[in-house]
Simulated scan of single mutants.
Amino acid sequence: MTSEISLIQQIDALLPQTQCGLCGHRDGCLPYAKAISEGEEANKCVPGGQPVADALAALLQREYLVAEESVWPVQVDGRPQRVKAVIREDECIGCTKCISACPVDAIIGSGKLMHSILADLCTGCELCIPPCPVDCIDLVEDVQSVPVESARIVEQNDLRRRYYAHIQREEKRRINRKGPVVRAEIDTDLFARFSLQTNAVPNIEITEKPSTPTTNLDAKTTIELAKIRTQIKKLEKQLSVREDAKKRDLLNTLTAQLAQLQGA
């Protein structure tokens, strides 16, 4: 277990900690790091671009793969252009949906009051855009200079700590929360095991989920339905921000599987 965690830590350290979910792992960089350690391709980090894909290939001694393409142009460091989210504040209705969607708590505001995004903390993850009911959030290019490697590491460590603190707070609220949850279900067991390995991040508690009513479905089918629904939600969120033919095909396939299982 220790060696497994160590490998996941090394992989996670190379990921940019934008927690954007564009790799297909909606709940952040750590789950993708775990998936990579288990054999998933290491070229899916869109904001990391080719430098991260190459660094992961070197670490894991795997074949070098072309990184997933970004819609943004490439910077001088080989990574896609850094972007920030900006709220058109005169159009904001203060619904707070973007606040709970932000993985690093870069948005401030309260109910029925104007919200603002802290530009220095925003990762450009795009996760605040889909839940906004009035479409008042834009992505703009980050005009600041590209950070040197030492500054990038400091930034990544800070973003990781902020995300873990966000998870810890959100998990405590989740059971009694009213209204929609705009992020994926967090694998608290993974984050708990990982956070215990270092004092650099808050410990994540494993929160027990409320029991659900029994149905006529057998346990295996119920679990399969839950997995498919989670995948569908991830894909719908990603496609609402950026269209992708492969993901659209997968969404259609999963939707058909869900309908078939529900009708069984």
Results as ranks from 00 to 15, higher is better:
residue 206 I to F: 00
residue 48 G to T: 07
residue 167 I to C: 13
residue 38 E to P: 01
residue 149 E to G: 00
residue 182 V to L: 08
residue 259 A to Q: 14
residue 202 P to C: 10
residue 132 C to A: 08
residue 159 L to Y: 06
residue 77 D to L: 10
residue 18 T to M: 05
residue 246 K to A: 15
residue 125 C to L: 11
residue 95 C to I: 11
residue 80 P to N: 06
residue 207 T to R: 01
residue 238 Q to E: 12
residue 144 Q to R: 08
residue 77 D to M: 10
residue 26 R to G: 07
residue 263 G to L: 10
residue 127 L to F: 07
residue 104 V to I: 13
residue 231 Q to P: 03
residue 155 E to R: 14
residue 253 T to E: 13
residue 237 K to M: 11
residue 31 P to G: 07
residue 103 P to H: 06
residue 174 R to I: 00
residue 180 P to G: 01
residue 109 G to H: 09
residue 211 S to I: 15
residue 140 V to K: 14
residue 2 T to G: 13
residue 218 D to I: 00
residue 190 L to M: 10
residue 40 E to P: 00
residue 243 E to K: 13
residue 226 A to L: 09
residue 148 V to H: 00
residue 255 T to M: 09
residue 48 G to R: 02
residue 205 E to W: 01
residue 118 L to Q: 14
residue 65 L to H: 09
residue 196 L to E: 12
residue 12 D to R: 01
residue 233 K to C: 08
residue 145 S to H: 06
residue 24 G to K: 11
residue 120 D to Y: 09
residue 253 T to G: 13
residue 260 Q to F: 06
residue 63 E to V: 11
residue 143 V to L: 10
residue 140 V to R: 14
residue 261 L to P: 01
residue 136 C to V: 13
residue 170 E to R: 07
residue 227 K to F: 08
residue 101 A to H: 05
residue 235 L to D: 07
residue 80 P to G: 04
residue 200 A to T: 07
residue 147 P to A: 03
residue 257 Q to C: 12
residue 147 P to D: 06
residue 135 D to A: 08
residue 245 A to N: 14
residue 218 D to T: 04
residue 215 T to D: 06
residue 17 Q to V: 02
residue 31 P to I: 11
residue 112 K to R: 10
residue 68 E to D: 10
residue 175 I to D: 12
residue 152 R to F: 05
residue 166 H to R: 10
residue 211 S to W: 04
residue 63 E to I: 05
residue 59 L to A: 09
residue 162 R to A: 11
residue 66 V to Y: 01
residue 234 K to C: 13
residue 144 Q to F: 02
residue 242 R to T: 13
residue 203 N to E: 13
residue 222 T to V: 02
residue 98 C to S: 12
residue 118 L to P: 01
residue 163 Y to S: 12
residue 201 V to K: 04
residue 79 R to I: 00
residue 126 E to Y: 05
residue 57 A to Q: 07
residue 45 C to S: 04
residue 49 G to F: 03
residue 108 I to V: 13
residue 200 A to L: 08
residue 167 I to Q: 03
residue 173 R to A: 01
residue 218 D to E: 09
residue 3 S to A: 15
residue 204 I to C: 05
residue 39 G to L: 08
residue 103 P to T: 10
residue 9 Q to Y: 11
residue 46 V to G: 02
residue 249 D to K: 08
residue 25 H to T: 09
residue 232 I to Q: 09
residue 112 K to M: 11
residue 141 E to D: 02
residue 179 G to A: 04
residue 256 A to E: 08
residue 263 G to C: 09
residue 154 V to R: 13
residue 172 K to M: 04
residue 57 A to H: 09
residue 178 K to A: 06
residue 1 M to Y: 03
residue 25 H to Y: 14
residue 218 D to S: 01
residue 214 T to N: 14
residue 241 V to N: 02
residue 124 G to Y: 02
residue 157 N to Q: 12
residue 67 A to C: 08
residue 242 R to P: 05
residue 64 Y to W: 02
residue 145 S to I: 09
residue 203 N to L: 15
residue 13 A to R: 00
residue 78 G to D: 03
